[in-house]
């Protein structure tokens, strides 16, 4: 037990330190500059860009070339978007899409 802890603690601490470094860098380097017009501009337009990229990234590992050709993912995504456009209730949209996806990958394929 102690050997495990001694072996892994440095790994955990270094990973924690490096991760915090990447998350805190802009706050340290740009402290007090939040009112700069360019940062205001970026604060407005980075979130939509990153959300687009996170969606693309989520679909990046889907195999569209082989069966089932990404159909579970695409259908679940369309259900999520459709539900959200109809009721604009985030949790409902997410539950509908996720429930369909779970049934699809566990039962249908």
């Amino acid at each position: 037990m102690m050997a495990n802890l001694q072996e892994l603690l440095p790994v955990i601490l270094i990973m924690a330190g490096v991760t915090f470094l990447t998350r805190s860098a802009p706050f340290i380097l740009l402290s007090g500059k939040a009112d700069h017009p360019m940062l205001q501009f970026l604060a407005r337009y980075i979130p939509p860009a990153i959300m687009t990229l996170l969606v693309l990234y989520s679909f990046g590992s889907v195999e569209f070339a082989t069966s089932p050709f990404g159909l579970p993912e695409l259908t679940a995504a369309m259900l999520t978007v459709g539900t959200h456009l109809l009721w604009r209730h985030a949790l409902l949209s997410i539950c509908v899409g996720t429930a369909f996806y779970m049934v699809a990958v566990q039962q249908l394929i």
Partner: peptide, 29 residues
């Protein structure tokens, strides 16, 4: 729980729609 992780994809999709409603400009997308 196979497939439950799709909740994060669905979350990003929903938030993408919300970003669109808030920003209403095509270029960042």
């Amino acid at each position: 729980s196979t497939g439950m992780e799709f909740a994060l994809t669905a979350l990003f999709l929903v938030l993408l729609l919300e970003q669109w409603k808030a920003v209403r400009t095509v270029f960042p997308f």
